[in-house]
């Protein structure tokens, strides 16, 4: 993944991108203003403020491309599928993307049972032996279909349930359960303590940093790096 700087682009290319991105009055903007506007636009799209510059190459190619011709008989993608399900994908060791759908039939049944029903997502956490160690609920709106859910503990297995609550009878019903996903194990603090400031720590740090000491963009790596770097240099490594 090569990330090149926006400054490398010619003014005509910048204008081209600005026009494609519907930036207001792009024809009137100076080069600097174009760079600022495009950077602002792309930064706004990024969740991560430390994110590098976007690759503009394919932006330039992504222009009035011919709409792909559908094959005969295919139908448009549905907004929803006719099933009741919930799925979870781990984004990183701390967050999961959870999405769900409720079939029209299931929705009708919920309404029939109690028109004031509400849906929430229940997070179940299990230890390595499969024992449930924590359960907590997240209220979601009737129209919600996906959430990013925190995974508080490493080395833990998670499963999400989509639950309907019927206030009239004060009962709950699990409508669907997701797959189980396990977060990776955390590094044992005693191991970190045992190698901190040693040649072994140098070995590890050299594996994850540039020669100028720049660390890769990764929260767990950064934590490890600061832990390994704190304290005295015991072997002069």
């Amino acid at each position: 993944m090569v990330l090149l700087n926006i400054d490398a682009l010619s003014t005509s290319e910048l204008q081209y991108i600005a026009s494609q991105e519907n930036i207001d009055d792009w024809e009137e903007l100076s080069r600097e203003e174009l760079i600022d506007s495009i950077n602002e636009l792309y930064d706004g799209m990024s969740e991560d403020p430390n994110k590098g510059t976007h690759r503009f190459l394919n932006c330039l190619s992504d222009v009035q491309y011919t709409k792909l011709m559908n094959l005969p008989g295919v139908e448009a993608l549905p907004d929803e599928y006719l099933e009741t399900s919930i799925h979870m994908i781990m984004k990183d060791p701390f967050w999961a993307y959870v999405f769900w759908s409720i079939s029209p039939n299931a929705k009708s049944e919920c309404i029939d049972r109690d028109s004031d029903y509400r849906i929430f997502i229940r997070t179940n956490a299990f230890d390595s032996a499969g024992k449930r160690i924590e359960t907590y609920d997240i209220n979601v709106g009737q129209g919600d279909r996906s959430w990013t859910v925190a995974l508080p503990w490493m080395d833990t297995t998670y499963q999400m349930d989509m639950v309907a609550e019927y206030p009239k009878d004060k009962v709950f019903e699990v409508l669907a359960s997701s797959e189980k996903i396990s977060t990776p194990p955390a590094i044992d603090p005693t191991v970190i303590e045992s190698i901190r400031g040693t040649a072994q720590a140098s070995l590890i740090i050299s594996s994850i940093s540039t020669k100028t000491g720049e660390m890769m963009n990764n929260k767990v790596v950064s934590d490890l790096f600061s832990k390994l770097n704190s304290g005295s240099n015991r072997e002069g490594a």
């Binding site: 969740e47 991560d48 994908i89 060791p93 996906s146 977060t183 990764n218």
Partner: peptide, 27 residues
Amino acid sequence: PSFSSWGEGGFSGVWIDNSTNAWIYRH
């Protein structure tokens, strides 16, 4: 080995991003 990728952030954030592409996984 541990869960990882060489994408930004070192995990799956590039390919599972709520603001842009995560919708594809429903399909």
